[in-house]
Design a protein around this nucleic acid. Sequence first.
DNA 1: AAATTTTACAACCGCGCAACC
DNA 2: AGGTTGCGCGGTTGTAAAATT
Length: 258
Amino acid sequence: MVRTICCEKTGLKKGAWTPEEDKKLVAYVTRYGLWNWREIPKYAGLSRCGKSCRLRWLNYLRPNIKRGNYSKEEEEIIINMHQALGNKWAAIAAKLPGRTDNEIKNHWHTNLKKRLKQESKPAHTSEGGSECEDNNKQESEPSTLLPNSPSLQTSENSPLSPVPCLSDFSSSSSDFMVETSTNWMADEYAVSSDKIAEVLSGDFWTEPYVAENSYIQENFPETLAYPEILFPLSPISLEESLRTYGFCEDIDYMEWFN
DNA sequence: AAATTTTACAACCGCGCAACC
DNA sequence: AGGTTGCGCGGTTGTAAAATT
């Protein structure tokens, strides 16, 4: 079977995303929703493959993502579920609202795995070997999850955690559209609309969002910027997509596009 | 202070599944 | 029924930042 290779076309950008690219993707998805990852970058004015856009959106840009600052409870869930399921990161992520499978996987490899290993081999220097990544080996002691371990605190002030907890948002991406219809605002992770606005307006949104429309007009034809021209049956209205993605009702997102 | 090593995270790659035609 | 396509998942790699020497 001949597969469509991601980024097969030359000219498609790879590597780290720029704030400008992020803005384009967020602006597009916020307005038009997710309808076809393969086509979205084209209409969003991005020289990226759909797969790259999807990953960026799911793991970093979408609303309600929690970054860093793993709670003891979350780590316990990860460890326990990993013991039960193995490397089923998507399934584990489904139990941790706002966490992505990728982030959980990273956290496991960089923190939890090592910590569990240390716990299982107390008071001895690293006796070699075992190292290797058999993720199902360290399951022996899920209950040894050291709630008071100093390392649990290390992420608290992580500079790599710029985005505060926004809310429940299952990362089980295949169920993304459906699951997000749940009332995430009501759950334990819900935050104020002010917080959301702060996130949306802060940091990489260093400039007034409305000003970002300029890229659309400058960088590519309007027919591409506004796919309803080409796709009058665009599947998701702006309002619906905002609701779907959990943006705050108090914010006048329409203003961004005026 | 500079060089080196380690850590943490973002992003890419390839495979497999399921829907569609 | 079988081919094609898009998407999701998990493994892996690249790299910037932090820590150590």
